[in-house]
């Protein structure tokens, strides 16, 4: 029952509906239902936000250390350097996302073309 275990044309769409649509829109519908009932500064939400953020951060870490596609053939030290430099630039630019992305990409590309 994995994504590639069934050759039928419809199987990927069923997989995406169950593991993708159901697993995300259920939370959105719950949010509409609860809207107004939970206070946005409630204590439970601090814990919920922390767990959700750590989970996505784990994805970020994996995408840098164990990337896929062409990024996998680049040196790991270069990827980490680019990420840290990008984040530092983002902080220096008073949390401007686009500055962080441009600096990280510039360092990665400079490193790749210098190799």
């Amino acid at each position: 029952m994995t994504f590639h275990s069934n050759d039928a044309w419809w199987w990927p769409f069923v997989f995406i509906l169950v593991a993708g649509w159901l697993a995300t829109d259920a939370w959105r519908y719950l949010g509409v239902y609860l809207g107004g009932r939970i206070r946005d500064d409630s204590e439970v939400l601090v814990l919920v936000r922390a767990i959700a953020t750590a989970l996505v951060a784990a994805v970020i870490g994996n995408l840098i250390l164990f990337p896929s596609g062409e990024l996998a053939s680049t040196p790991v030290a270069l990827r980490i350097e680019a990420e840290i430099a990008g984040f530092a630039a983002y902080q220096l630019a008073r949390k401007t996302v686009v500055v962080g992305i441009i600096v990280a990409e510039a360092i990665l590309l400079a490193g790749l073309y210098a190799l």
């Binding site: 997989f15 995300t24 939370w27 959105r28 949010g31 989970l55 994805v59």
Partner: peptide, 17 residues
């Protein structure tokens, strides 16, 4: 896969709220 996606998407609830 559904469990991992669901857990990564809990934050959608407080955002919608």
């Amino acid at each position: 896969a559904a469990l991992a996606v669901a857990l990564s998407s809990v934050r959608l609830t407080p955002m919608v709220v």
